[in-house]
Design a protein around this nucleic acid. Structure first.
Lengths: 156, 156
DNA sequence: AGATCCTGGACATCTAGTATCCAGGAATGA
DNA sequence: TCATTCCTGGATACTAGATGTCCAGGATCT
């Protein structure tokens, strides 16, 4: 799974600590990431309705909605796309009794089993929101909110 | 996720219909797959203890154990390796308060959440065995056992 | 001995993820 | 109005991993 997901996850979390928009360069500097490339991931989050962007001075990115309404699956899907973990629908088109136009995701027993597992995975990621993770972080590292806020301000 | 998983899944299922070892070339011809490359995947299954290989004439690959004891996760892990779906433990080494040598998979709240989802996925794949899928196939396509057997014999 | 087939390494190719750069537009403040 | 800051989106290059091929060696069977 792509590295960009990890960046997007942590960046969304960082955005929960601040109120003003944060430029992509600041968010990248926080973890020493390549700014232009992180920017591309943030654009995907904007297209997905997770972030909003503000151009101009004092502009940047901010959360588009409350962290309680942003699930981890929202972020994963925004970066990785909606495809399933394992795509198992091609090989049977070459097997015996194959017919063009049939949806092999329906007739392949493996595809169905993999989809069950896929849905279990998505169910967990849907149940966990950015707000949940933020609460976990506060529990583990109580100084995190203030630390992150001041570090982002220092990078502006 | 790699295409080889799909090949391995279907090939293991095919091997449940026959008793004698089947050469890699025959198993590849069944789905019109590149023989040399499928062979590499089968070698991985052998190393994982899922298949056994027999050299020489009348040789080939066969299941190493009853299909009831082979889970879909066994096959996925043999091809893809044991890594988690999302590896989220690198970025925090660059963040504030980072220390070398610390296991960030323990301290990163996202890594923990992703692991929960990962385990849910693996739980489903562990619960489903090759024998289960074979039963599903028989239910959907009752002629499948005889069809597959005769087609493999025709390719020998 | 000869044929069949697995083993494992070396090698080539192709794709997707990673990363950079730049021209254009929008917002801010002087 | 003008300069500055910052997002947007396209073009481009690089890289790692997946995909695919080939071959020499060893094991097994007839």
């Amino acid at each position: 799974m792509s590295q960009g997901v990890e960046w997007a996850l942590h960046t969304c979390l960082n955005l929960t600590w601040v109120d003003a928009p944060a430029p992509a360069g600041v968010l990248a500097a926080f973890y020493e990431l390549p700014p232009a490339y992180l920017n591309k991931q943030l654009q995907a989050l904007v297209r997905a309705g997770i972030l909003t962007s503000v151009p101009g001075p004092r502009g940047g990115f901010q959360l588009a909605r409350p962290p309680e309404t942003i699930s981890l699956l929202d972020i994963v899907t925004a970066i990785e796309g909606p495809e399933e973990l394992l795509r198992c629908d091609q090989i049977l088109t070459k097997g015996p009794g194959s017919h063009a136009g049939v949806d092999y995701r329906q007739s392949c027993a493996f595809a169905q089993a993999m989809r069950v597992a896929d849905l279990a995975w998505r169910r967990e990621l849907t149940a966990k929101t950015v707000a949940d993770v933020r609460a976990d972080v506060v529990r583990l590292h109580p100084s995190s909110p203030a630390d992150t806020r001041s570090r982002i301000d220092a990078l502006r």
